[in-house]
Design a protein around this nucleic acid. Structure first.
Lengths: 216, 216
DNA sequence: TGTACATCAGTGAACGCGCGTTCACTGATGTAC
DNA sequence: TGTACATCAGTGAACGCGCGTTCACTGATGTAC
């Protein structure tokens, strides 16, 4: 890449970072202005157009950025799990939530814009989340209790897990960072919730076929 | 109430309805302007201040409105369930999702603003959702399988159910209304997810105390 | 290697626009006698 | 009941401001010979 291109990429990244930074104090992407972003990034408003057509296009780039780094994390965890031959629920949840706090800007953006961004951004996020859910449903084959479930059921469970995880993000990022106790309690509840889902999955098939409770 | 007061309440309601109407085509509350609301409501911008200090205050009123009607629905369902002596999962989920589509404006607002509204609005919604979760956790006593769980666990499960239900709202409201097939599939998946959670709850205690799987 | 020209990321002035908010007002409704 | 005054929901003009976008520009970097 030429020097000029390198500099351009640098400015582009500065704009993306600036947008995330402006969302830090709880503001939504949708009411951050183009001029604010360029001001934060230290360029003139018109320079914005060298990189993005409009704020929506910047938002989509942000989705890509965020999900790229998230996919990287998940790939590493997947390798670890394959090495160990199983998934450690507690460890995975704690690691995930730690990562969420560490990369708070990214996850805040995901949780926030998931339902309230522009249509394009919402679709992009949904697409990425579906992708994560698909990966997860194949990972479930690692679990002896699950590997015989039809893939439709695995999809359904993966969807539940992903949605639940996004909710954890929203909740943990709503807590002030010095409230360590509350964060810990939330993490413990998250571990329990994921365990509960897995317990449900373990007994899913037999419940369904052999012994339907009259209450269910 | 005097004639003047009645008229004032009417205008107030018109403003609330106008705000919801403006969110109909997928826009977020946060980027709807005061002037748009009054224009939609058919009053002059300055009339707004006779009813609300600012848009945030209108948003909080909207949260109250929405949750009031939702609480009413849940109270009715609760009475039905007590009459029957149990909760019919499939029926409850289908009824809920039908209601969600019927009162789309309300649930769209809830799902959207939950994470991305102003801090005050987010807190208000979280407070209401916690309230719903508390009610639900006491309702769980209706289930023979659950009534012996410690209330901490019931809270954890109720929280999972509420969060999952909010996600259904977001998803079903993202579907175009003529896509009946997709709506049906989503409903079926929702039923399964709630069943899975209940299966998990049923086996939660025994899994935990007697026979911890090495994979969990 | 040196020169002449092309490219293009970022600049800075300018525009028209919708915004939130202020203010003094109007006229229907409410109240006191 | 009738009259005189008070209240106050809604009006309409005006304000200063930040916005997105346009345009012609500058000057560093890249390219061709």
């Amino acid at each position: 890449m030429s020097l000029r291109d390198e500099k351009k990429q640098q400015t582009r990244q500065t704009l993306l970072d600036a947008a995330l930074a402006l969302m830090n104090d709880g503001r939504s992407f949708v009411n951050i202005s183009l001029r604010e972003v360029t001001r934060e990034a230290g360029v003139v408003p018109t320079a914005f157009y060298r990189h993005f057509k409009d704020m929506d296009e910047l938002g989509l780039a942000l989705v890509d950025d965020v999900c790229l780094s998230l996919r990287k994390l998940l790939r590493e965890e997947r390798l670890k799990a394959q090495g160990a031959g199983h998934i450690a629920i507690k460890g995975s949840v704690m690691m995930f939530l730690l990562y969420v706090r560490q990369e708070a800007r990214y996850f805040d953006f995901l949780a926030r814009e998931r339902w309230s961004g522009s249509v394009k951004i919402r679709e992009a996020i949904q697409r990425e989340l579906n992708h994560f859910a698909n990966d997860l449903s194949t990972d479930f084959r690692l679990f002896p209790e699950m590997q015989n479930l039809p893939s439709e059921d695995l999809q359904m469970i993966a969807d539940l897990v992903i949605n639940t995880a996004i909710n954890w993000c929203g909740e943990i990022l709503s807590l002030p960072s010095q409230q360590v106790r509350l964060q810990y309690e939330l993490s413990m509840r998250a571990v329990k919730q994921l365990r509960l889902i897995f317990v449900g999955a373990k007994h899913w098939r037999s419940e369904k076929t052999s012994n339907p409770s009259p209450n269910l």
